[in-house]
């Protein structure tokens, strides 16, 4: 079992790179979350779990500014996202990368062009460097060099995830949002992807916010786990704390049949 990441100081001493307080999100009459507090600390891989339909993706999209919130504050890099001017907002957006669940690659661009989109928009790079960096990122995420000139429709599901990760890493972000990065991959592919994320996290000093259902991922790469239920965070902490929790859903999640199987084969 991979436990390669360095030990971290206790949460109390650490810098919260994302700080969510009293978040309320509702669609029409239906309240999705209320009074939600969450901290993501610099340099950690946070696994974010919760039953389907509880709003994991909604929370991610709210932090990213794709869904409007009704109340509460979201601070990223110590800045309240509501107070930012358009320019500073762009500066914040440059510092995070997002891997969408379906990849969200631009279908009319090749993989290389997809990776170059954020670079062209935000950086002043020479054509040579643009080409080399895109190829470098494509290789870093474990794609073969010939994938660079392929279109998304010519890629398999696993390759789309990797290509999309390469695009998310294009600007060397400090925070990486991953929405179910291993869903739809075979167990070996998912394991490789977990290793990749953990390697990249160490190399680039990333903070990773990972929405996932994959118990293997949680056990192998996550430093900390937060669980969403009934519209707020029901528990957050190391995997051991989560497994010791009394909350019925968490007990089912971490001590169910599938979880035990993961533990037996993994530990």
């Amino acid at each position: 079992m991979l436990q390669s990441h360095a030990p971290y100081p206790l949460p109390g001493d650490r810098e919260a790179i994302i700080r969510v307080r009293g978040l309320e999100v509702a669609f029409g009459e239906k309240t999705i979350m209320k009074g939600l507090d969450l901290d993501v600390y610099r340099g950690e891989i946070l696994g974010f779990v919760g039953a389907s339909g509880q709003g994991k993706s909604v929370l991610t999209r709210t932090i990213l500014g794709l869904v409007r919130k009704r109340a509460g504050t979201i601070e990223v890099f110590g800045e309240d996202l509501d107070d930012l001017s358009a320019g500073s907002r762009r500066a914040v957006e440059r510092r995070w990368g997002v891997l969408f669940q379906q990849g969200a690659l631009f279908s009319s661009l090749t993989v290389k062009q997809n990776v170059q989109v954020p670079m062209r928009e935000h950086l002043k790079l020479s054509e040579r460097l643009l080409d080399e960096l895109a190829r470098l990122k494509i290789e870093m995420v474990g794609l073969k060099p010939d994938a660079a000139d392929k279109f998304p429709s010519e890629l398999s599901g696993g390759m789309i995830k990797r290509a999309s990760l390469a695009r998310a890493l294009a600007l060397d972000p400090e925070i990486l949002f991953l929405d179910e990065p291993t869903s739809g991959l075979d167990p070996i592919g998912a394991g490789d992807f977990d290793d990749l994320i953990s390697t990249l996290q160490r190399t680039l000093g990333l903070t990773v916010f990972m929405v996932t259902h994959d118990l293997d991922s949680i056990h192998t790469v996550c430093d900390r786990v937060a669980a969403l239920g009934e519209g707020h965070i029901i528990a957050a902490g190391s995997i051991d704390t989560m497994m010791a929790s009394d909350h019925p859903w968490l007990r089912m999640y971490f001590n169910g049949k599938r979880a035990r199987a993961v533990l037996q084969t993994g530990a």
Partner: peptide
């Protein structure tokens, strides 16, 4: 140092 810097240095 980020990947771009490291890349140019190593290149």
């Amino acid at each position: 140092l980020d990947t771009l810097g490291a890349w140019v240095l190593d290149r």
